[in-house]
């Protein structure tokens, strides 16, 4: 049994234990199965919608497209505006203050506005994703440029760097470690906003994960609800592990420990 030892120390083992515990709790039959489904029911749901059918894949596709569209619009707007906020005193007094106020607003509050403006469609959801994530990014970008040690700029300036070269070779790389924290936060806000919007808004042009989750409740299909939640967690972990963690690792490798 020695070869099993690494398994007992891995998180896979604890996941297995959790599923076992879940099955045991289900077998006590305290609640009916549409309140509290068994692991087997959840597996069956995945079988039906992922392998036999493709409803889950389609929903994932739609949701991720909305998320990425919204996120990249936020980046395209938020980063330049954040940089301009740093440069211009006027924008610091106006746009930055506006961003600070809107940042405090929970993104779900944009839903009534977006429904009236755009109707029940993709655009409405992407709008909520942007509104939920762009304001924090403006503030974050401004802060990360603010925090660049002046000595880097002075050194580059005395060597002859100006304008675009200064921006490309000094400002961006120097701000990058703290900017990546803002990008991560922006992603988290975008993700949360997407789900709020999808649960709230029934769209005619495509059903996303949030909508599937919501319909699961309406149809009292708890296996569907739990399955979608598991998918959402998996997507969150995947992005963290395969997008942000490698970027952070590469920064640590270049800058040394404690560079965030």
């Amino acid at each position: 049994m020695k070869f099993l030892k690494p398994f007992f120390k891995s998180s896979a083992f604890y996941l297995f234990l959790t599923i076992l515990l879940w099955q045991w709790a289900f077998s006590l039959e305290l609640y009916s199965d549409f309140f509290f489904p068994s692991p087997a029911q959840v597996v069956a749901f995945f079988w039906e919608n992922c392998i036999k059918g493709s409803a889950l894949w389609q929903a994932m596709d739609i949701s991720l497209k909305r998320l990425l569209t919204g996120y990249f619009i936020s980046l395209a707007i938020g980063i330049p505006l954040g940089m301009l906020c740093h440069k211009s005193n006027f924008l610091k007094l106006t746009l930055r203050k506006l961003a600070l106020s809107f940042q405090t607003l929970p993104s779900i509050c944009w839903v009534p506005i977006t429904l009236l403006w755009f109707g029940q469609n993709n655009t409405a959801i992407i709008f909520v994703v942007c509104m939920g994530s762009v304001w924090g990014l403006i503030i974050g970008t401004e802060n990360s440029i603010q925090r660049i040690p002046n000595i880097y700029l002075k050194a580059a300036y005395t060597m002859g760097a100006r304008r675009l070269t200064l921006l490309r070779t000094i400002v961006f790389p120097a701000a990058f470690p703290s900017l990546i924290t803002s990008l991560k936060q922006c992603w988290a806000f975008a993700w949360r906003s997407l789900l709020s919007a999808e649960i709230y808004i029934s769209t005619i042009d495509g059903i996303g994960l949030g909508q599937l989750l919501h319909y699961g409740r309406e149809m009292q299909a708890m296996d569907q609800v739990i399955s979608i939640i598991l998918v959402l967690i998996a997507i969150g972990l995947f992005i963290e592990r395969f997008v942000f963690l490698p970027i952070e690792h590469s920064i640590t490798k270049r800058w040394g420990e404690g560079s965030f």
Binding site: I151, Y152, K154, A155, A156, I170, P173, A174, F176, R254, W255, G256, S259
Partner: peptide, 8 residues
């Protein structure tokens, strides 16, 4: 301080 650029 050295003012070297840590990203290079």
């Amino acid at each position: 301080e050295s003012a070297l650029f840590p990203w290079y």
